[in-house]
Simulated scan of single mutants.
Amino acid sequence: MSDSVADFAADTERFRRELLAHCYRMVGSPHDAEDLVQETYLRAWRSYDRFEHRASVRSWLYRIATNVCLTASRTRPVRVLPSGLTGTDDGVSWLEPLPDAWIGDPAWIDDPATTVVTRESLRLALIAGLQHLPARQRAILLLRDVLAFSAVETAEILGTTTAAVKSGLHRARTRLDELRPHPEELLEPSDPRARALLEAYITAFEHSDAALLETVLRADATLEATPFRDWQSGRADCIHLLATHVLGAPGDWRLTPTAANGHPAAVVHHRSRPDGVVVLEATPTGVSRVIKFHDPTLVAVFAQPRTQNSLPSGSASTVHG
Rank of each mutant, 00 (worst) to 15 (best):
A172D: 05
R175C: 10
A107M: 13
P82T: 09
A221H: 02
V287P: 02
F228H: 11
L217K: 01
D209K: 03
T256P: 04
P99M: 03
V146R: 04
R306I: 04
A303D: 15
D89C: 09
R171W: 09
D145E: 15
Q131P: 06
Q38L: 14
M26S: 12
A282V: 13
T285Q: 14
A128C: 03
K166D: 14
A10W: 04
E178L: 11
Y201P: 03
C23F: 00
T86K: 00
E52Y: 09
T114M: 10
P183R: 00
V78R: 15
P183Q: 07
L223M: 11
D145W: 03
L126M: 08
A316V: 00
R63C: 10
T226W: 03
L61I: 06
R180E: 10
L198Y: 11
A164F: 07
A225Y: 00
G159V: 02
R123L: 05
V278E: 13
L19N: 02
A125R: 15
V287L: 04
H170P: 00
S317G: 06
Q232S: 14
R195S: 12
Y48M: 03
P274V: 10
M1Y: 08
Q131K: 07
A225V: 00
A9V: 09
D145P: 03
D177H: 15
I127G: 02
